[in-house]
Design a binder for these strands. Structure first.
Lengths: 193, 193
DNA sequence: TGAGTAGTGGAATAATTATTCCAAAAAATA
DNA sequence: TATTTTTTGGAATAATTATTCCACTACTCA
């Protein structure tokens, strides 16, 4: 009978995600991964194929996780304006919550790989749609609850929110000041008024 | 008597800037640079020292150029709201104006290097201050001209504008649709009202 | 126990990387 | 022409890269 798997593929992927998130694709070497993941070089190749395949999987994993967190968080926020504000608050925490501010895995990958690599470009574009749809639905809820003006273009606001969060996650890397970032968010969310 | 310089250092730097801008630091090899710049490997090292030094110089060059363009552009825009809108219009053109959308050199570098490299982090933070100050001064002009409410926190709005432009330049890499980006800008600029 | 698979350690490969070096060619002018 | 410096082509170096391979160990269960 075969020996059973000794390591948890999910956990290994999670570690890979964090490393790629922090360092980016090019700056992460297979040696880095082997040192960090705690599994053998051969096992790594056996399980994940190649560096690029592992990266794509890690990015997907991040995006799935992220979308669930956002949708799950908003689900419990009945005050829409405040809900979005608190979501951004969380995102900022997440971007800063490290020795070195790592920003957002998706945003980092967008600027590093999207123009040269079709696979990641596709992943990012799809993720963008998913996130924007979550925003649109949530804003629609706000309209239904008379919290948001029915004259707003919700899809447009959603893509605006996506742009704003991207920008904040970029800036978090050079100006890791939560207070200032939050003030900026307040300003940005006044478009909902 | 010495032979005179055969190539224009400025022009070579300009080419290097475009290459780094398009491909990023890690994905650009010295061989790429040699092929693109049209000068010899030895001349490259003689003139610029190392890949990293050349990169830093190229980034600085971009930032200087960029700040001048922004300040110069706004100088002739007497309608502040429209001026900022048209500036963003230009920025979008610039980010998209290539076979492959290259976004913004500064934004790209922020996500690729800022957390690992102090030099670029410093360059970016300084550039951010410069840009935000240009915005603040321009907005102050708007207040003086009674185009902008005197109750606005101009520094806060400036850092918001910086975040918004960063976000737009990120998105331009996966969604190179000028019309949609401009609609998003219109929404974002409603914070000035 | 023993067959079968999973995982390991490490060597080996092959490609690419940044960088250094050198000898020769090219240009400028005294 | 002679001298000085720039520039070039290309070889050489040394480090790092992703990837493959193999012999060995570890584990599972029929």
């Amino acid at each position: 009978m075969p020996r059973s798997k000794q390591f948890d593929k999910e956990k290994v992927l999670e570690k890979a995600m964090h490393l790629f998130w922090e360092k980016g694709y090019h700056a992460t070497s297979m040696q880095d991964l082997i040192d960090t993941l705690g599994i053998n070089r051969a096992s790594l190749y056996d399980t994940f194929g190649s560096k690029k395949e592992l990266f794509d999987l890690a990015l997907s994993h991040y995006q799935d996780q992220n979308a669930k967190i956002i949708a799950g968080f908003l689900y419990y926020q009945t005050n829409v304006r405040q809900g979005i504000y608190l979501l951004f608050d969380r995102m900022i925490d997440d971007a800063l919550n490290n020795d070195i501010p790592r920003g957002c895995f998706t945003t980092n990958t967008t600027t590093e790989l999207a123009s040269a690599d079709e696979k990641s470009k596709k992943l990012i574009a799809e993720d963008k749609s998913v996130i924007e749809e979550i925003y649109t639905n949530y804003l629609q809820y706000g309209v239904n609850q008379s919290q948001i003006s029915p004259y707003k273009d919700l899809k447009n606001i959603s893509s605006y929110l996506y742009a704003l969060q991207s920008g904040i996650k970029v800036i978090s890397k050079v100006q890791p000041n939560k207070e200032q970032l939050l003030k900026l968010v307040s300003t940005g969310l006044s478009v909902l008024d």
